[in-house]
Design a protein around this nucleic acid. Structure first.
Length: 431
RNA sequence: GGAGAGAUGGCAGAGUGGACGAUUGCAACGGUCUUGAAAACCGUCGAGGUGCAAGCCUCCGGGGGUUCGAAUCCCCCUCUCUCCGCCA
């Protein structure tokens, strides 16, 4: 969430920035007004409290010195003040809860460097690599769901039987490919990133920290009986790893990577892009994540993007990088680059990675801080994250791109060691 | 799932109704001494809110209650540990 002091001291800056993502001015004015009321009420309440405390101390002294009558007089005076204090406290609490709720729903301020725009149509293509629409042969222009069935490596029907639509089952070499992609992504980043295997189900507070709750409640799976949420991305547990902790500045940046299942209800996208692996409720992903200081954050953002991008390039996929416009950036982020791969079988660009800088927005929600190097005071961490590799769409683009004239699928060389040396699926090239 | 014990600052650990935001130790930081370091000694040392400031206020796992006054008493919840049961 944003620092409420920013609304107080720089209302114009906040307004200008949030207007870029479609927030109305009245919503901002409401926060400014609530904040003023809360502070006024709190200071009146604190003043009363202070007097009650002073009186109580006197009461104690009087009782000890044996002046019972004077003590009882002060007692009743204190009691009356206490009642007033309680009344003011109730009002202050009510308003500050309202203020906090309004702040939790308020998105982050987009970076000044993020392009203007209202929707995904305004995103800016920064670069496109390895893409030539004319270069794809007819044997590559087959959708992955057909290829998957052809080789028995993707069992959509049984996935649906088990769990419903938009759940899939990988089989044989297809399942091995899922595992290979994840392990490859982990191994390539192990030089700097500590591998973490976090829980996949988390408490409400953990979901609130990243901004997935309360605003996007409909997108998340919830286990009511135990009040646990299935994570939509490893970003959720990783952001809470240091929740309510104070890190040493010297330990920053702190880099983590995690391979987890990710669960998404996709409530707003019923019937859209639902074939095959285009959009599924459960998928594997390797996420890169870092806690940092303010000054380190943007360099890390670039680092994560470079790593995600290089992996896609090394897998031999055509891709492009998008600089998301202010209106399309996720609510918690200040700037986001998306990586999309081209899938020739479905003839579409598929988003496979979203690399975001969150400023201190998430860390403030998570109360993740660091102690300044000079030992004086604390600062709120900045967080950065991005998918190193999200399986289904990479799997789809890979299978389509690498389909040979004979129908077999060539396995990229860097994946072969992770697939027991398999060089090809379904062809004579196989071992 | 059953029984018991516990939750206090970065860590350890006192405090069981009145000057306690909290004794003390360790760690950390600054200094003296030293060629340098260690040791010793002196000092500083929790996090927030609000205010120009002095100050005031909040926080002893979370929530509620009793009281003039709660870290301390009462109730509920969460978590941790030990034993039993079950179990990959």
């Amino acid at each position: 969430m944003l620092d409420v002091r920013l609304f107080r001291t720089e209302p114009q800056l906040v307004t200008d920035s949030l207007l870029r993502r479609g927030i109305h001015k009245e919503q901002i004015d409401e926060i400014v007004a609530l904040d003023a009321q809360v502070r006024e009420l709190s200071s009146s309440r604190d003043e009363l409290r202070s007097r009650v405390r002073a009186l109580s101390n006197e009461v104690g002294q009087l009782f000890r010195s044996g002046d019972k009558e004077a003590a009882e007089d002060l007692q009743s005076e204190s009691r009356a003040l206490g009642a007033q204090e309680k009344d003011l406290d109730l009002q202050a609490e009510e308003l500050s809860a309202k203020l906090r709720d309004a702040l939790l729903h308020m998105p982050n301020m987009p970076s000044e460097d993020a392009p203007d725009g209202a929707s995904e149509h305004d995103n800016v293509v920064v670069r496109t690599e390895g893409f030539d629409p004319e270069s794809y042969a007819p044997h590559q222009r087959v959708p992955h769901w057909d290829i998957g069935t052809e080789h028995g490596i993707l069992d959509v029907e049984r996935g649906v039987k088990l769990s419903g639509s938009m759940f899939v089952m990988y089989r044989g070499a297809g399942a091995a490919l899922v595992r290979a992609l994840c392990q490859l992504a982990l191994d390539r980043n192990a030089d700097l990133y500590e591998e973490v295997r976090p829980p996949t189900m988390v408490r409400t507070a953990t979901m609130v920290s990243t901004g997935h709750l309360p605003k996007f409640i409909d997108d998340a799976y919830h286990l009511e009986r135990d009040d646990l949420w299935a994570i939509p991305t490893a970003e959720v547990p990783l952001t809470s790893l240091a929740r309510d902790e104070i890190l040493d500045e010297s330990s920053l940046p702190m880099r983590f990577m995690a391979h987890t299942s990710c669960f998404r209800r996709e409530a707003g996208s019923a019937g859209k892009d639902t074939r095959g692996l285009l959009r599924v409720h459960e998928f594997d992903k390797v996420e890169l994540f870092a806690y940092s200081t303010e000054s380190q954050a943007q360099q890390l953002h670039a680092e994560v993007l470079a790593r995600a991008e290089q992996l896609i390039a090394d897998l031999g996929l055509a891709y492009r990088v998008l600089d998301l416009c202010a209106g399309d950036i996720g609510a918690s982020a200040r700037r986001t680059f998306d990586i999309e791969v081209y899938a020739p079988g479905v003839e579409r660009w598929l988003e496979v990675s979203s690399v975001s800088w969150f400023g201190d927005y998430q860390a403030r929600r998570a109360n993740a801080r660091y102690r300044h190097r000079d030992g004086k005071g604390t600062g709120i961490c900045h967080t950065v994250n991005g998918s190193a590799l999200a399986v289904p769409r990479v799997w789809a683009a890979l299978v389509e791109t690498n389909r040979q004239a004979d129908g077999s699928i060539a396995i990229p060389e860097l994946l072969q060691p992770y697939m027991r040396g398999l060089k090809s699926i379904g062809g004579q090239l196989g071992v």
